[in-house]
Design a protein around this nucleic acid. Structure first.
Lengths: 116, 116
DNA sequence: CATACTACCTTTTAATGCAAGGTAGTGGGG
DNA sequence: CCCCACTACCTTGCATTAAAAGGTAGTATG
């Protein structure tokens, strides 16, 4: 008796996205200064769903790890925003993760090719 | 004051691997009938570290979700083994995840190219 | 001045990877 | 015949963390 297969699929998909989230956020921030909603919008464009409740704690964590820094900037319409950018540690980390991503890609694509 | 940067990197790497674990396990099983230690060995070869305490519960979950099935088979040296194979649901799921993986790859590689 | 909107943040819950520890079948050496 | 090593299975407890839901506050608009 299969246990809700659709859920299982969505679950797996979510997991795949989750694992890559941190890397993607660093990628987005590396392009230009952005604030939380910018990041969410960019990732949504790339089919990577994220919600606020995920983004804010994650940004805080990355900040505490010394990978990000931010400064307040007023908005023409609404409350002020926190604009994030990479620190030098963040840039170094991103470079490392680029390597990890490339390895992962080739490992998995090798597994895929090895199929009957 | 950066908060242990090396840990942060290892953490991110682990997360990336974790998210793709389920997909990789299905890939390995799709090639031929295997038992837990086979899977761990295959993934290790592909630089994807997994340990027993992760593998067994995960296999049980996939079984309960109706994606896998197994049968016992005696070994020439040691206790009997559980050989796993994909059910038809599992095969369908794997096909879906292939699509997800391809989309993820192109999304992320697009983000990477868009860098300054 | 009240409502809508944007942006930030926190609390709580559930999932899950992993370390560590536990059970049991098999076979070889003493 | 017994003990020890090896292999394979599984479970318990912990720490991390994504996400849902709810909360605060500044700004603009009718």
């Amino acid at each position: 008796m299969p246990n809700e297969n659709k859920t299982s699929l969505e679950n797996s998909r979510a997991q795949m996205r989750k694992g890559l989230l941190e890397y993607c956020i660093l990628l987005v921030i590396s392009r230009k200064k952005v604030y939380a909603s910018d990041i969410i919008a960019s990732l949504r464009t790339a089919d990577l769903l994220v919600v606020e409740g995920t983004m804010y704690p994650l940004l805080s964590r990355l900040k505490n790890d010394g990978l990000l820094d931010y400064h307040w900037q007023e908005s023409k319409s609404g409350p002020p925003r926190k604009y994030y950018e990479l620190t030098s540690h963040g840039k170094a980390m991103l470079k490392q993760l680029d390597g990890t991503w490339e390895m992962l890609q080739s490992s998995i694509n090798a597994l895929r090719l090895a199929r009957a």
